[in-house]
Design a protein around this nucleic acid. Sequence first.
DNA 1: TTGAAAGCGCTAACAA
DNA 2: TTGTTAGCGCTTTCAA
Lengths: 345, 345
Amino acid sequence: MSRETGGRRAPTLEDVAARAGVSRATASRVVNEDLRVRPAAREAVLDAVAELGYRPNRAARSLVTREAGSIAVVVPEAEDRVFRDPFFASLLVSITQALADSTVQVLLAMGRPGDGCRKIEKYLRGGGTDGAIVVSHHQDEEIWRALRETRLPAVHVGRPQAGGAGLPYVDMDNEAGGALAAEHLISRGRRRIGTIAGPQDMAPGADRLSGWRRAMRAAGLADDLVEIADFSAESGGERMRRLLRREKGLDAVFVASDLMAVAAIHEIQAAGLQVPEQIAVVGFDDSQAASLSRPSLTTVRNPVDSLATTAVDMLLRLMQGEEAKSVVLDTQLVRRASTDFSVLK
Amino acid sequence: MSRETGGRRAPTLEDVAARAGVSRATASRVVNEDLRVRPAAREAVLDAVAELGYRPNRAARSLVTREAGSIAVVVPEAEDRVFRDPFFASLLVSITQALADSTVQVLLAMGRPGDGCRKIEKYLRGGGTDGAIVVSHHQDEEIWRALRETRLPAVHVGRPQAGGAGLPYVDMDNEAGGALAAEHLISRGRRRIGTIAGPQDMAPGADRLSGWRRAMRAAGLADDLVEIADFSAESGGERMRRLLRREKGLDAVFVASDLMAVAAIHEIQAAGLQVPEQIAVVGFDDSQAASLSRPSLTTVRNPVDSLATTAVDMLLRLMQGEEAKSVVLDTQLVRRASTDFSVLK
DNA sequence: TTGAAAGCGCTAACAA
DNA sequence: TTGTTAGCGCTTTCAA
């Protein structure tokens, strides 16, 4: 695993200093953009750096500064399903982009189901990073304990279930999103509205459902047409069939994820019914699947990008010793053809 | 950015040694599983480690071993489109999972368009990693130069355009995949077959097209119905409209990505034609979009998982000083409803 | 089998 | 403004 496969030794600060005719300390100052260096010396060092192709050794620097220069995106106990989720991919990308300006590197720490998160825990405790962004919808006591004990700055994306060791979090307003969906359907004249919810032990699952409930009751409508699914396309389709069987008069459904919503649309069509003519459908996430679907899917926007930039922002603040308060982001409804006759596709 | 926010100093090897009543060297040997340590001493050290909650400091270790304990997944000059691509997300996940057993950490290094890849280059040169997996369909001279000069073990995912500094690569057989698609359509009795290709300055774009061409000619069919798109859904739909305008007798299309293929299907349907009855469609990638589409999409499987595990395998081998030869993986056709009446969905 | 000691490359007091 | 010096926490000779 040696990096020095027969090559010349990489130039050190010592080499640079020697070549520039200054001390190592001065060379270090130039490299770290310390102001109190005579212009001439500065020039000399910069030249030497360029000529030698010098790059500071991160390990050496980390050792003395006690900063790793990286943050970890932690996904504990991750199932395959989580990863293939476009939400997760987008989040990861947005986080990385948000850090592109800084010198901070992004480390991807994914646990495997079963294995617990021993590897991640070890890494966090070993001082491998300066901070962590935890992405999970489960309780991850071990990770939380490690974060607490190491006092590592950390933020949670998505409201953690049981306190999350007091970590600040960024989340979208799932409850308001669910209400938004219901209100939209009601405003379109629908009355017999069902919902396919996510797992109730996950915050997005529970919150989207309760938002829907609140709006339904506020409008004096029944909130009995509830089916619980698991966010997978299969489960979404299956629950849609149940809903169709349960209620002949059904004229709309709010489905807690786009993926499930697309599957639901297929089932409605397979039953010989039209979307949105007979049954209107609202999804959740505004993922690619929503615009690719036919009819295109009205959905609640999941502000992934803002989620990521806010999380990064909070983490950087925390890393500078400042306070960070949890943030809940607004959601918006994206109107498309699955609830609206006037939209073409 | 200090990690030691008022907390107790993390225990060092020195502390462990003191507590166990041995020297630092012995403690180090135990931690690194060196065999020549007396069982009693071993026990004492292990106990001390447990009691103190000792974790080795990575920076200190790296400094002396000259190993970073991490590999970088490098995505230079990445546009937004690349990231949202499910292929990339799956690849990243598979790479991380493939490394879950090892102690190696995964570092995500994404460049931004325009900015070049100065940050990445700097990092690679700074000894921040022990190896790199480069994911790109462009020429990235700077990165290649950095990799060459640092002699950093590296592999390319996807055949690099212009040599890629002699990096070994893993790729799927895009050419064979294109041929597979054409042959399948021909075997289903289609004769007037068009194609919507990807950009010709990208290997997957060019190779899938040439495979299609080869199979068409081999069957004595005309290969004139070619439209070049850019892998985006919009471009796919637009090129499909052109194809429909160009050739009334069109009875099949091979589209170089699922995303474009789904858009193409929508256009065909919008023109009042049936898939697969009038026009059969084959996509490429076997992404989620393919199974979500109605009719479900026959497509060429992109073996993302094998791509990732093979790349990781090659890299680890390289890091141990062994040789690694480029690998081209086979592809398979996944039959679904867009080319086959007997498939239900 | 063990310990003493040297140093990996860097930053940061402290003095000059 | 500069240089000297002392470590950061660890691995690894080299002797014992």
